[in-house]
């Protein structure tokens, strides 16, 4: 795998960053991290990323959407692939189906945490191919 591919991991939980970083670095990706939505936006704007892996619930319940919307509104960044991850599901009030919610969710893929390493890699590769 090319070492030039840069992925930003945005999650408020350091362990999830560590887990996903380990998986992605093992595949040769260059991984950086952000712990809040504002940090994620700043880093995405400054750096040249190929993919953003974004947690939904950070400091706010819907912090991930704040980031996704900010990116889509940025002319330069709107094509950046976003994989949204969340531990939220039915009981927590957030249920999404990518097929029907993608338009307003503004993300390219959506998955429940934690993803098995192979599945994460598969989804990442798929999104990177789409670029």
């Amino acid at each position: 795998m090319s070492t030039e591919i840069k992925i930003l991991l945005a999650d408020d939980d350091p362990d999830f960053i560590e887990i996903n970083r380990t998986i992605l670095e093992a595949k040769g990706y260059d991984v950086e991290e952000a712990y809040t939505s504002s940090e994620a936006i700043t880093k995405v704007r400054a750096g040249n990323y190929d993919l953003l892996i974004l947690d939904l619930m950070m400091e706010e319940k819907d912090a991930g959407f704040t980031v996704a919307y900010a990116i889509r509104e940025d002319e330069r960044l709107k094509e950046l692939p976003i994989l949204m991850l969340t531990s939220a599901q039915e009981k927590t009030g957030f249920t999404f189906k990518l097929s029907k919610d993608q338009e307003w969710m503004k993300v390219d893929d959506f998955a429940a945490k934690p993803l098995r390493p192979a599945e994460l890699v598969e989804r990442v590769e798929k999104l990177l191919k789409k670029r």
Binding site: D13, D15, A26, K113, P114
Partner: peptide
């Protein structure tokens, strides 16, 4: 989720 994630990377051979 974090516990499961760590176990995943160990058991799936990432490390």
């Amino acid at each position: 989720g974090a516990i499961e994630g760590y176990l995943n990377i160990i058991l799936d051979g990432v490390t």
